[in-house]
Design a protein around this nucleic acid. Sequence first.
DNA 1: TTTTTGACCAAAATAACATTTTAGTCAATT
DNA 2: AATTGACTAAAATGTTATTTTGGTCAAAAA
Lengths: 190, 190
Amino acid sequence: MASERKKDIVEAATKSFTFFGYKATTMDQIAKLANVGKGTIYTFFKNKDELFEDICITLIQEMKRAAEAVIDPAQSFHENVHRALFEMLAFRTKHQLAVKLFQEEKEMGTPAVTQALKKMEDAIVAYIAVQAKEAMDRNEIQQTDPQIAAFVMMKLYVTLVVDWERRGPALSKEEIAKLFELYVFKGLSR
Amino acid sequence: MASERKKDIVEAATKSFTFFGYKATTMDQIAKLANVGKGTIYTFFKNKDELFEDICITLIQEMKRAAEAVIDPAQSFHENVHRALFEMLAFRTKHQLAVKLFQEEKEMGTPAVTQALKKMEDAIVAYIAVQAKEAMDRNEIQQTDPQIAAFVMMKLYVTLVVDWERRGPALSKEEIAKLFELYVFKGLSR
DNA sequence: TTTTTGACCAAAATAACATTTTAGTCAATT
DNA sequence: AATTGACTAAAATGTTATTTTGGTCAAAAA
């Protein structure tokens, strides 16, 4: 089993990316944190970017797994969106990496980070789109472009969770869930 | 009537800000474009930033006027939002200044521009919030936080008009109106 | 042999310094 | 009283020197 070291490296790198961001994390730092010679990192990963991408892919997978753990195909799309939403709100407080990357993207615009976030966005939107399409085929929700529906949901999530904080007091999980339901499912019409 | 010159200056500055953005526009350039000595600008405006703010305030006022020209208090909130939305989509193609500032903000992060856009956002959200509040009081739409409702509408507008272009083909005015109605008023539920 | 290592190197980032550009002033001009 | 453009200090930009960092590889360790 050669990859106890690989695990150490990935763990150290994840910690460092989470605390300092992509740019401020050096390969020497990762090596030191992992108690490994720098060269060892390069036996597992071609370069810094590939190591970073590997970690991002893991993050996406974990998000997916977390969502799938609460989604019940027997339940309605509406109910599952609610469950997944709460799961993501909980996930967020645990996995600070995405939060840190979001921040680095906005205030430094590091290319590798921009690219990584784009991929995450793609994965999330694609995932929601599939669920939405299925719900439409089951005639559970209105017929509309599933890609756009997924994109709008993701953006609304960011709007309520991240953007709103700059205008008013941060919203509680319950408030976010209520508002998400209002705008995505019910609409303002009476 | 001393202010034929002031008008020239404001016109020249508006043109330059629109074509080159805030940072790439110099006071010398504005003076030359307006056929005016540079000092003259400073008899009307304390500094570059104040001149810029003045122009931004005018833009906000024009947007407000354009919206109010199509809004009919006798009509429903729903109908008025539809009208205002179309007016804004038309307005956008005319007044390229906001578009240019949006771009400069995203790719350069010029502080003065960030601040100006924040003010525009505030003005727009405040305006929509008042309309939404009135509609709620008339029991025309669901009771909810009008500030958040306004914020969500503005963000949805940006999502559909600007952000979506990076994922799929730009949406037509009609498509945008349909989607806006779907998510704000009707909701996905059947 | 295979895996690990850290001194080593080229390239990139940063700092230090020189040069140019620009916002804003004001004495002279109209 | 209004206008101007040469002028200045400060900011931006360009240039060069210095340091940092990603990535390599011959040697050491396993």
